[in-house]
């Protein structure tokens, strides 16, 4: 009886040890298996502006109250047009900064006179909601110098970006942490 009990205990201990050892081995195996696939740096989300179809989802699908996606301006590509189709609606009444002549619903684009007949357009990121209305306008008739980018000072870098899930053109990518932006016209400038 005593022996029998001892044997049972021994068997149990052996079983336990085996399970313990095998689970440690499993974890080590998993770690080793994935080791070759790890990237030392983290990845962040970014929009590929060449694929983006400026649908406007960025304004509404971000987990943040204020979307982390904002309009960005590649100045080197801009034509500095007086009639800016990113700033003004189609058939504008006048070419000025009146509320009725602004395409942007929040007035986040600042139009400044540079020299005749050129105007500079800057984005006020505090106001921009990422609706991409200006991007659509600029792409349609202009040089396409306005485009959408995730601003990493705002982005909380969700494991799965909820705008990426809702993006119709699947323009969201995971990019390496040290190259967090895909800028338009970046290869044109040294």
């Amino acid at each position: 009886m005593q022996n029998n009990k001892k044997e049972t205990i021994n068997r149990r201990r052996f079983l336990k040890e085996t399970c313990f050892g095998s689970s440690i081995a499993a974890l080590a195996g998993l770690a080793a298996g994935l080791w070759s696939k790890t990237s030392p740096a983290k990845t962040v989300w970014q929009i590929d502006p060449e694929i983006c179809s400026s649908c406007g989802n960025c304004a509404t699908y971000c987990v943040l109250e204020e979307s982390a996606v904002k309009c960005v301006h590649a100045y080197a590509m801009c034509g500095y047009c007086d009639l800016c189709t990113g700033y003004l609606p189609p058939d504008p009444k006048d070419m000025d900064t009146g509320a009725e002549n602004e395409l942007c619903p929040t007035g986040a684009i600042i139009r400044t006179f540079v020299e005749d007949p050129y105007y500079e357009y800057t984005i006020d990121e505090k106001l921009c909601i990422g609706c991409a209305k200006c991007v659509k306008g600029c792409d349609a008739f202009g040089n396409g110098s306005l485009f959408m980018q995730i601003r990493h000072d705002r982005c909380v870098n969700c494991n799965e970006c909820s705008i990426a899930v809702a993006c119709p053109s699947q323009a969201f990518k995971r990019v390496p942490f040290d190259k967090p932006y895909i800028l338009k016209g970046a290869n044109n400038t040294p």
Binding site: G98, A99, E100, P105, T106, G107, L127
Partner: peptide, 9 residues
């Protein structure tokens, strides 16, 4: 319109 736009913003 201008008033409404300002209010909206």
């Amino acid at each position: 319109l201008r008033e409404l736009d300002l209010e909206f913003r």
